[in-house]
Amino acid sequence: MSLKVLVVDDSAVMRSMLIRTLRLSGLPLTNVYQAGNGAEALATLSAHEVDLALVDINMPIMNGEQLIEQVRANPRLAGVTLVVVSTEGSETRIEALRARGVSFVHKPFTPEQVRATVLKVLGVADA
């Protein structure tokens, strides 16, 4: 198994934290891409194959909800597993995301929570 990951967040520190967590989770990462907003993420997705995208909600230029809408509307990106990692506390918004088949990790998170969610959505047994 190999895993190509895209981390989308307007905070470079948050992107580093998420990438470090994925690496420490023992996942077989072959490619790690980063984007600072939804528009950059779409450009990356059109140029590279990605298996898993971790996506923030509140971002400038194009937010996470708009990005998810575009990814879900594009049949070529149907294979991308989406996980939202956000401070979002609104149940209304979280339920709308879940209805689109998106998993959710709430900030502030612990590395263990990110690891557990990612393993679950990828169907990887917790060794």
């Binding site: 470090r20 967590t21 420490l24 989770s25 612990t110 590395p111 263990e112 690891r115």
Partner: peptide
Amino acid sequence: LWKNGVILRAE
């Protein structure tokens, strides 16, 4: 643990 690259498995 975080600074030394270890993820806690359960607590």
